[in-house]
Design a protein around this nucleic acid. Structure first.
Lengths: 228, 228
DNA sequence: GACATTATCATTGTCGACAATAACTATGTC
DNA sequence: GACATAGTTATTGTCGACAATGATAATGTC
């Protein structure tokens, strides 16, 4: 594996983030510095700093003398993070509703169109990318960079989870429902009221949380070696 | 300056955090690793990791080849962070209202009592500590550890600011107003409704934000060497 | 055989040195 | 004198080595 970009720690961080998000490194798994550092042909110094960068995003947890572990979320964690994301994303939606200009509306419609297209093609990879782009657009258009940043971090933590990452692969993934829900969100923002956004988004989020939690209950914890 | 605790990086982090929060290190100021590391009789390795820990809290910003700078907030930043804190703290208050048991209510009243006492004595140091404790209690009682954590980080960023830290020293600090406002918050949580909390907290936050922004406008930016 | 104790090993924490980069200074040119 | 250029210095980035710690295995005792 070769790297070529800014500073080493950033390149390493990008690689590790990728490994976590696509499941090569699994939740709860310990990251042994020397092992992975050697695999990347780098020394431990920049590797360590890369880990701190990931810890900043909540993707890994660093404990003194116990190394870095890929963050492992409990059901409680998922509920809590979900609650926050819902709160913040609804807030973002309301702000967009109140402030959106022509450009913002166009961006939103554009993101929606891409997502709908991915759903029509029933293409998982395309959908995941479009979904991420859609929500990132939402966060950005709210016009609060700190909010955008927090939402990004809070959301990123989920993607490392196969139970979420692999959701679409479960065969019975409802592309049409997803398209409809996102259409509804856009409609609420462009034509609805704050109360409408509140109720509509809540409903969509609740449905998704249920879906996630059911899968979480089904999935046996992958040998949680975490709590020591 | 001597240190003795867990791992070096944590001890260093604690010292640096203290220096930032009490103004020995000012917003925008560059942190030169060797200089401060020598002052603490430590090498750059643990010092650097301490910086990453602070970056995780948003207290410093690390840019490749440009070192670490104590986070410098623009007026825009203050507005944005304030908006988020208001949103989250109102959410916390609503959750407490809905779920608080006898113990929670007692904890809230206790925190309020200490704050009122500090106000009666017109003791700034006491007040600052009590205020922090009051809000931390609020965040904790909401029963969402992730929310608690985010609120803590989001709030910490303010304390490094003299314009906020030194507010109470401006002579005309209104202890009675502060006591009254916190009393009102507790009353709203214990006896009010969600709508009441929303409106009441909004009003209090708005007043405080105004106060902060006026002072921010008055304070000349301390030779912003940031934007390079 | 089960348990406590010690020794061994794997891994992280810290260090000092050197390389790479950016900021600064001095010099030359017009 | 102002500007561009080259050289110098200050600071960060990366490295390999050693120390400290925690986990594991081996040993001894009951």
């Amino acid at each position: 594996m070769q790297i070529e970009k800014e500073v080493l720690r950033d390149k390493i961080g990008d690689v590790l983030r990728g490994w976590i998000l696509d499941g090569k490194l699994k939740p709860g798994e310990r990251i042994v510095e020397l092992t992975l550092a050697r695999e990347l042909n780098v020394s431990r110094a920049p590797f360590r700093e890369a880990l701190w960068g990931l810890a900043r995003q909540g993707l890994v947890e660093i404990r003194a003398h116990h190394g870095a572990h890929v963050t492992q979320l409990s059901e409680q964690d998922i509920r809590e993070i979900f609650e926050i994301r819902e709160l913040l994303e609804i807030h973002a939606a309301k702000k967009i509703r109140a402030t959106a200009d022509a450009g913002a509306k166009a961006a939103l419609r554009q993101a929606l169109a891409e997502l709908e297209d991915a759903c029509r093609r029933r293409d998982i990879k395309l959908f995941s990318a479009a979904d991420l782009r859609f929500h990132k657009t939402l966060w950005e258009l709210a016009g609060n960079r700190h909010l955008q940043h927090i939402l990004n971090d809070v959301s990123t933590r989920f993607f490392g989870y196969e139970l979420i990452r692999d959701l679409p692969h479960s065969g019975k993934f409802r592309f049409d429902v997803m398209a409809e829900e996102h259409r509804r969100m856009v409609k609420l923002i462009l034509e609805g009221s704050d109360r409408g956004i509140e109720a509509g988004f809540r409903k969509i989020f609740a449905g998704f949380l249920d879906y996630v939690l059911v899968r979480f209950a089904e999935t046996p914890p992958p040998a949680r070696r975490a709590a020591e």
